[in-house]
Design a binder for these strands. Structure first.
Lengths: 210, 210, 210, 210
DNA sequence: CATGAATGAGGTTTCATTCAT
DNA sequence: TATGAATGAAACCTCATTCAT
């Protein structure tokens, strides 16, 4: 029996342990959401204990996603706080973004599942909370962008949302491919993504309504 | 017992009946892939018969998707064959694209499922065939674009692929939302999509490496 | 794989095989409803196959109950058709009734479960059907009684219903006891039941409103 | 944290609070035994505390039942101590009995559960104790009846036991029915019970061996 | 070709009970 | 005594797919 987490702080730690266990299992796995029993094992807990911290299996993985995307966005502030040349900042952000995802392809794999699985198995209210939190973090990042590039308020959020959309869409179209014999891309998801994002941001910042 | 389809033509007709039944059921349904028994019923066939025409349930819906996206792409040729002003052609294409999807949201709903479900339950070879066919059709459309806009060969395909990616990503992020109380978009998926695509194409066509 | 039951007659046979398997398992068991997997095994079928014949586990056992009580009631007609002396007929019926239940205590055990379990796990509509069928058979028996004893129509049904009620209530109160060290009855459920029923019928038939 | 109950009297009070909470929750509920967590909450205690007073959940509800039936029996003494006319006394007792149950249908609902659930989940020893206590109280009532009606010792106990049996059996057969569209009783459980009990007592008291 | 009966894997979640604090 | 965190058993039913008829 695992040590009991009475203090709020201990509970938070335990909650995190579950999330990390889930993330690692998913990263190592075959693409399905790992069974709760496995997550519990990996976290050194009993199955039932996991359900003290998360209402459903999907809730665990929603948290994994949230954490992943938040991590990406955290770099934003650093990048845009540095230097003053807009196009350099954007380029640096995109480079970092692409590199992060290249290192953490499990995030995109999980995100792709999310579209179909999380959305369908999360209780509506939990789904709402998840989306709300994600938008909130995007909005925070958007504000940084707004400020750095001198955009109208809310504009940065849209840029980031569309960056996110293009990324996940591209991954599902070509990145998820195990068999990199595609006539098109030969597995170079990273390069494709970089190019597509560069094009999008160029267009967005050149826009008359930008 | 349904009449037996001996002639190749009859078989094709029956195959189509199944696809249409599946499409309608999905459009009317709650977002899950309809059970094979339902599709069979709706097509006036027995469950086993469906499996004479499709190896798996997912194969049916892959076909539905293929048909949908092909339909969108078919407009391409018409639009780009008309008029000579590039930016007008692009605008017209995008307008048509967005309008089509607005009329056929089931296509995007199914596409979103596809990301998670089809990819996981289609036999690898069937998945390959599906993607290959889709790319083929995108490539055909891309060739039209290349020619109309005087782009380097293969460039149009990329534009279309990214258009597709941005579209599906955006749908998953904001379009699928039932609860349009989002602080962001208030349910205006159509407008969002139009704006995002316009930005992307502007950037792509302005690109030095375009 | 079990032979396939195409003909309606074969299906009925298979359905019966399931019911019998369930009955025997319950009779031999510890008092819980056997798992469907066990019933299926005992019937030489796969789990899923059982669900082609019954919508829920409880539906199987409702049928077992129905069959048991119907069997008891079937004797009625024979007994009341024989002889002309009312009190002898009644005595003979009660004796047969008690003897049957003594031989088939699993029926009372299952009935006692039924009160709590079936009623709670059967889908409402199935529950209604079950009760309706049971009353129907009681009513048929009641008509026989009415005729034999010259009672007002519907009176026999009431007598039988109360006989049933007294029987199940008595079983639950004293018959179910494994530990027959009761200060009261020392395990003589049979005798207790016989006496109680005799008292009830005597009172009912002596009633001014009989 | 609830105040600690050191004195025996305080403990008894707390024990009672739990029983009352359980009774009210059951009466208000949907027919299932309320979860221990709910009972604890309603009693203003933590889950674990409840287990200081009762070994199992079922033990709580066994106590609720005991209390209910004891209450009914308590009227006995009053009724049979009053007046001298036997048949009036019996009629008065039965009228009071039926009326009490009509006011407290939760008692019969719980009793019906008891048949299946309590008997199966109470530890054998607790079950024995429960039954023993119940019989004890019935016996006390029986003695009153014996004396008032001049019956042989132990006869009153039997009458009460069978009254109890007929009552619970009848409830399970017709009283529990939500859908009072039965062809038989149209929801008049009270009337049915009164009539059945009158018949039984008439027969029992008329019996040659009474 | 068409049918539909048979198969069987698959995994979540609840909640009574225990026991460390 | 009181608390509440941790445990883990338990079994249902669906439905995609197969294959005997």
């Amino acid at each position: 029996m695992a040590k009991r987490a009475y203090a709020a702080e201990d509970k938070q730690r335990r909650r995190n342990a579950i999330i990390q266990a889930a993330r690692h299992l998913f990263a190592a796995g075959d693409g399905d959401l790992p069974a709760v029993a496995l997550v519990a094992d990996a976290a050194g807990l009993a199955k039932g204990t996991v359900y003290l911290y998360f209402r459903t299996r999907e809730a665990i993985f929603a948290e994994v996603l949230l954490e992943g995307w938040s991590e990406v966005l955290a770099d934003l502030a650093v990048v845009f706080a540095t230097g003053t040349n807009s196009s350099h900042q954007v380029a640096a952000f995109l480079a970092g973004f692409v590199a992060y995802l290249d290192r953490h392809s499990e995030l995109l794999r999980l995100d792709a599942l999310g579209a179909g699985v999380l959305e369908r198995n999360l209780k509506p209210e939990a789904l709402r909370r998840f989306k709300h939190t994600l938008v909130e973090r995007l909005a925070a990042g958007g504000a940084v962008v707004d400020h750095a590039l001198g955009l109208a308020p809310g504009r940065g959020l849209r840029l980031l949302m569309r960056t996110y959309a293009l990324t996940r869409g591209l991954w599902q179209s070509i990145g998820a491919d195990q068999n990199q014999d595609s006539i098109l891309f030969q597995g170079d998801f990273k390069g494709e993504l970089a190019e597509a994002l560069a094009e999008y941001w160029r267009g967005a910042l050149a826009a008359p309504d930008a």
